[in-house]
């Protein structure tokens, strides 16, 4: 039978909530890096400069085929051997940002590929340059297709933030571990962490689904 102690829950709740802030910060920051870098990867893979296309494709493939936790360790512990000292936060953000950028680049690519060829030709026939063609014509139409994947990876990156605990980023998992080893009680901290993740993930996912439909309507495309 469970030995669940409510007074212990109330005692550790403030620490867990503070750590939740860090978790959200890590997820949010990592996601922004991944969004921007993912677009850079996607566009680089479409460039006409063959060495760039090749190098980007191989990098993305490499990152996608190795575990995130290895990449986190690698950036944090191998960096110093080359004289690059990074704080756990910086190393963590680089690793998780790069990791998700490589996944998001595929999402963007699928989105860009979903834009009909006629749109490129219309842009070309109006003499629009490549920057304008991407920013005003192609990417706005790629986003509705890409949005579902982008949303999945937002929830994904959030659920992967506990991996940052391995290099000592004080997010939820790390805090729950510390509490556990301080009090020799693991049931309440881990259960609470699970509940907090659930309470954030579920509404976010449903909000994303509704937003997707709104975006499609707003830019004048039919909803799916």
């Amino acid at each position: 039978m469970f030995d669940w102690r409510w007074e212990f829950v109330w005692q550790i709740l403030p620490r867990l909530l503070e750590a939740t802030g860090n978790t959200l910060l890590a997820a949010g920051f990592g996601y922004v890096i991944a969004l921007v870098l993912g677009l850079v990867f996607a566009l680089a893979q479409r460039s006409h400069f063959k060495p760039l296309t090749f190098a980007t494709r191989e990098t993305v493939e490499f990152i996608r085929s190795t575990p995130l936790v290895l990449q986190i360790f690698f950036v944090f512990y191998v960096g110093p051997q080359f004289g690059i000292m990074l704080s756990p936060w910086t190393a963590g953000m680089i690793a998780i940002g790069l990791h998700y950028a490589s996944y998001l680049s595929e999402v963007y690519r699928a989105g860009i590929d979903s834009v009909p060829k006629g749109q490129w030709e219309a842009a070309m026939s109006l003499s629009l340059g490549p920057v304008r063609t991407y920013s005003k014509i192609i990417i706005p139409q790629a986003i509705p297709t890409a949005f579902a994947g982008m949303g999945n990876y937002l929830v994904g990156i959030f659920k992967d933030t506990p991996m940052l605990s391995v290099i000592g980023v004080a997010e939820l998992m790390h805090t729950a571990n510390s509490i556990g080893s301080e009090y020799y009680r693991f049931l309440e901290p881990y259960t609470m962490v699970g509940i907090i993740f659930l309470l954030i993930s579920l509404p976010t996912a449903s909000l994303l689904r509704r937003t997707e439909d709104r975006i499609r309507k707003k830019i004048g495309l039919r909803s799916r």
């Binding site: 006629g118 030709e121 014509i137 830019i219």
Partner: peptide, 8 residues
């Protein structure tokens, strides 16, 4: 097929 920009 016109190729108008649907988001504009």
């Amino acid at each position: 097929h016109f190729n108008l920009f649907p988001h504009m």
